[in-house]
Write a protein that binds this DNA or RNA. Structure first.
Length: 469
RNA sequence: CGGGAAGUAGCGCAGCUUGGUUAGCGCGCCUGGUUUGGGACCAGGAGGUCGCGGGUUCAAAUCCCGCCUUCCCGACCA
């Protein structure tokens, strides 16, 4: 029978479904100020998992965490012409503080290239100070015209890495390393999203960058979501902020800098890449709660076994929780389905009489009886199976919704339902403008084998185009 | 910011056209009881300056004006 407060089916109204999931899974609420977001504990616990996976890899890549101020002098932004042009429409500016008008307005950071550049200039003197590899976890503010929880909020949480290098080659290699070893790895192996990796067209590049690398995820409605970016900034910011070092041979030179970021938008990507009619689906490696043990009836011996299984699973390294004495069995099951918990261990008197429990997986809702003694082993193997299966399924959907075409008209048609792939030479700057007029954008450029090119000018590149969030 | 829709209890809505006493309904919430193998049931209860401001009127959720907010589509973006 149809529950009265069911989610809107995604096939019927995908944006509505997205909002329903965000609300029902207790991920986030709208804040009181337009476009702001309250991240609720469950949503935040997913963010903490993402943070941890990213942070571990960022540190493995040699970068160190630091923190720079929220407030940036307005004049800093103006020092890099393209940068200020790109960001000024969405800046929040403080003009009044401490009871009086400020002599110089203060910008609430939309990103920190400028303020970090200023300090890099102070800290870097010699080639021995390079590379300087910094990262910060912070909130940033961009006054977006059309906010949407997680996908585009006026304030969002992210990490932003900023590095300075002696040579263009070193900077390019580092940006690429972050792109692949941090972002793609977390997105693919933890979030189970088979993102397309590539570089942005010059038109889509970050304001002030000479090259932008991107991970483009495909959502279940066929639209693209930029899930991370990694920029080569050339010497643009080094010149604007005098980030200069003296080389081993003697002469001074401007550094080559990079910046790279991933944000709470990833949570929106998670929802839209894996979610289904029943709600969120969280891949096991990402899940804050990997398994929930549910006593079918609130009877002492049943709850006791359930508690014992929780302890055993926790001891086996599974992130597990017990859900007892809280309403009907059906209610509890559906609540955890909406939250996307990968595995449910259902403990009932009938099963227990036969020395077993029922284990259900969230991704395909298959159920199987498992002997009590085998529970933790089976849960752990199931978590691995689900992780792999989610990635495989998402890859299958991605490939099915990616169409190879030969001209712009066919690309526009294919972009109605997914991605189109065509030679970059066929698109060009004029073709890109034509696509943009129909709300279709060049998501990324790839080599024919799918790897990430060094420059849009490489021969034989292919363009992936799509509608995007 | 342009086009469209909507603001009435925590959420979703009805009531408005044709102004009129204590503004209803479903879900949720509280209390008690019975329940619990897929979104439980019964009984009792709490909860609303009808988005904000102004106007018309004996009387405004209802009519008029202005503003704000939210959602959808577009341009911008992580």
């Amino acid at each position: 029978m149809a529950p009265s407060n069911a989610l809107t089916p995604p096939s019927e109204d995908f944006p509505r479904w997205y909002q329903d999931v965000v609300a029902s899974a207790e991920m986030a609420d709208n804040g009181p100020v337009r476009g702001t977001m309250v991240i609720r504990p469950y949503g935040y616990s997913i963010w903490e998992r993402i943070q941890r996976e990213l942070d571990d890899r960022i540190k493995a890549a040699g970068a160190q965490n630091a923190y720079f101020p929220l407030f940036i002098p307005e004049s800093y932004l103006a020092r890099e012409a393209e940068h200020v042009e790109g960001f000024s429409p969405e800046l929040a500016v403080v003009t009044h503080a401490g009871g009086e008008d400020l002599a110089e307005p203060v910008v609430v950071r939309p990103t920190s290239e400028t303020v970090i550049g200023e300090f890099m200039a102070k800290w870097i003197q010699s080639y021995r100070d390079l590379p300087l590899l910094l990262n910060q976890w912070a909130n940033v503010v961009r006054w977006e015209l059309r906010p949407r929880l997680f996908l585009r909020s006026s304030e969002f949480l992210w990490q932003e890495g900023h590095t300075a290098h002696a040579t263009a080659a070193d900077a390019a290699a580092y940006a690429r390393r972050i792109h692949l070893e941090v972002y793609y790895d977390v997105i693919a192996s933890i979030m189970a999203v088979p993102a397309y990796v590539g570089i942005k067209s010059p038109r889509e590049r970050f304001a002030g960058a000479i090259n932008t690398l991107t991970c483009e995820g495909m959502m279940r409605d066929g639209k693209a979501l930029q899930m991370s970016t990694s920029h080569e900034l050339g010497q643009n910011f080094a010149r604007a902020f005098d980030i200069v070092f003296q080389s081993e041979a003697g002469p001074s030179a401007h550094c080559h800098t990079t910046s790279w970021g991933a944000s709470t938008r990833l949570i929106g990507g998670l929802i839209m890449a894996h979610g289904d009619d029943r709600g969120l689906v969280v891949p096991p490696r990402l899940a804050p709660i990997q398994a929930v043990v549910i006593p079918v009836r609130d009877e002492p011996d049943v709850v006791e076994v359930a508690q014992r299984l929780v302890d055993e699973l926790r001891g086996a390294g599974v992130r597990v929780t017990l859900d007892a004495a809280r309403g009907s069995f059906g209610r509890r099951v559906t609540d955890w389905e909406i939250k996307g918990v990968p595995v449910r261990v259902e403990v009932g008197p009938r099963d227990l009489a036969e020395g077993r429990v029922t284990i259900a997986r969230r991704d395909d809702e298959a159920k199987e009886p498992v002997a009590l003694a085998a529970v933790s082993g089976r849960v752990r193997s199931l978590l691995e199976e689900i992780q792999a299966s989610l990635f495989d399924e998402a890859t299958r959907r991605r490939d099915a919704a990616t169409t190879d075409v030969v001209d712009l008209d066919a690309a526009l048609e294919a972009a109605e339902t997914g991605f189109a792939r065509l030679p970059w030479a066929v698109v060009g700057a004029e073709g890109e403008a034509r696509l943009n007029a129909k709300a279709v954008t060049v998501r990324c450029l790839q080599r024919p084998d799918g790897t990430t090119p060094d420059s849009p000018d490489e021969p034989d590149l292919v363009a992936l185009v799509a509608r995007a969030y």
